[in-house]
Design a protein around this nucleic acid. Sequence first.
DNA 1: TAAATAGGATACCAAATGGAATCATTTTAG
DNA 2: CTAAAATGATTCCATTTGGTATCCTATTTA
Lengths: 115, 115
Amino acid sequence: MSAAPDLQPAFRALADPTRRDILKRLSAREMTLAEITAHCDMTRAAVKKHLVVLQDGNLIQMRRSGRETLSSLNADALKPVVNWLTYFESFWDTHLGALHDTLSDLKDTELEDKE
Amino acid sequence: MSAAPDLQPAFRALADPTRRDILKRLSAREMTLAEITAHCDMTRAAVKKHLVVLQDGNLIQMRRSGRETLSSLNADALKPVVNWLTYFESFWDTHLGALHDTLSDLKDTELEDKE
DNA sequence: TAAATAGGATACCAAATGGAATCATTTTAG
DNA sequence: CTAAAATGATTCCATTTGGTATCCTATTTA
């Protein structure tokens, strides 16, 4: 059996909106530092730091190709995070009398959330 | 339709292990500041600050009862967070050839995770 | 090979964060 | 009524964090 993952680096990495945005962009394709920076409204060095934090959380990998470094998403690392949160699923809606359908709520949120 | 929730305060609140621990404890029952502090190995004032951050993320509510304040979990506020993360579900296991059964992986993680 | 590209590595800064200490306020127990 | 209990509010401090500016190294490519 594998050891329990340390959730802290992943939760830490997810706590910044710039980093969450980078994750979404990397879900489309792997990108160079310059490409990511083009969307981030901050310097290359600042974006690089965010990438290191994401790497610490194991949420991305980086591979060198010639003079550029490609960052790619490691979505699997989100599984333990989702699992931690899923523990609370049984407490949803308790104070409202469980009138809402959880699945339809989730779908609504997905459509509305612009982040 | 409701407005898209701002995920930042919730992700921020979840980024600290003490706060995640408090959430787990509050899932059992509402607790006073003194009760929570008894488990936290830090001063009452420090725990109080964590409670305020959790409240900012809408993850808990506080109600005054006489001279004590009861904090209780608002698990519903985790739904948008889970939903944001669920977007990445379609990217799980992609680099491994999708050999793993996602559900069994989640179950394993749940059993192992001690946090 | 020389110049332009793409990153890495540091040093430095202001602001946010985690925590302790202290003092004030409200309730409840005698 | 008075003291103890429970919390709130404020201040202060060290560390971390998000960012910029700079300098350095490795690749391309004209």
